Computed example of a mutant assay.
Amino acid sequence: MRELQHPAPSEIDIDAVLNALVDPIRRRIVCQLADGHDDQACIAFDLPVSKSTSTHHFRVLREAGVIEQHYQGTAILNSLRMDVLDERFPGLVPAIISAERARASSPADRNSAV
């Protein structure tokens, strides 16, 4: 069985996490994982990018230590490493999720998306 590489909790770097979360598509993925159940397949995400670009975004999040991925058959399942991230950087991910939700619901953001 194929295994995907993830950084150990002690290897997760704040710069890598922040760099991964600077992109709005990746923040969208993190918010969906935070709202949903664990182990969401990549195809469960309705992202406005190509499949290859989507794969890139998931890889960046995994390599930064933000998400965990594992194979189930041919599907890759994703889960947010909230416990690890909250232990390493208390409150960081919930603050980013809260800010992203506020941004996404602001009238200015809705008008610019049209």
Rank of each mutant, 00 (worst) to 15 (best):
I12W: 12
I12Q: 12
D13K: 12
D15H: 15
A16N: 15
A16P: 08
L18D: 09
L18W: 14
N19H: 09
V22N: 15
D23M: 07
D23W: 10
I25M: 02
R26A: 05
R26T: 09
R27T: 00
V30M: 12
V30Q: 11
V30W: 11
C31D: 13
A34S: 13
D35I: 00
D35L: 04
D35V: 00
D35S: 09
G36M: 06
G36R: 10
H37F: 03
D39H: 10
C42R: 11
C42I: 08
I43P: 00
A44G: 05
D46L: 03
D46S: 11
L47P: 03
L47Y: 08
P48E: 13
P48N: 12
S50K: 11
S50N: 06
K51F: 04
S52A: 06
S52Q: 12
T53I: 05
T55Q: 12
R62H: 05
E63C: 00
E63D: 12
A64L: 03
A64D: 09
G65N: 07
H70V: 00
T74R: 15
A75N: 13
L77P: 04
N78F: 01
V84T: 15
L85Q: 03
E87I: 02
E87F: 05
F89M: 11
P90M: 13
L92W: 04
L92T: 03
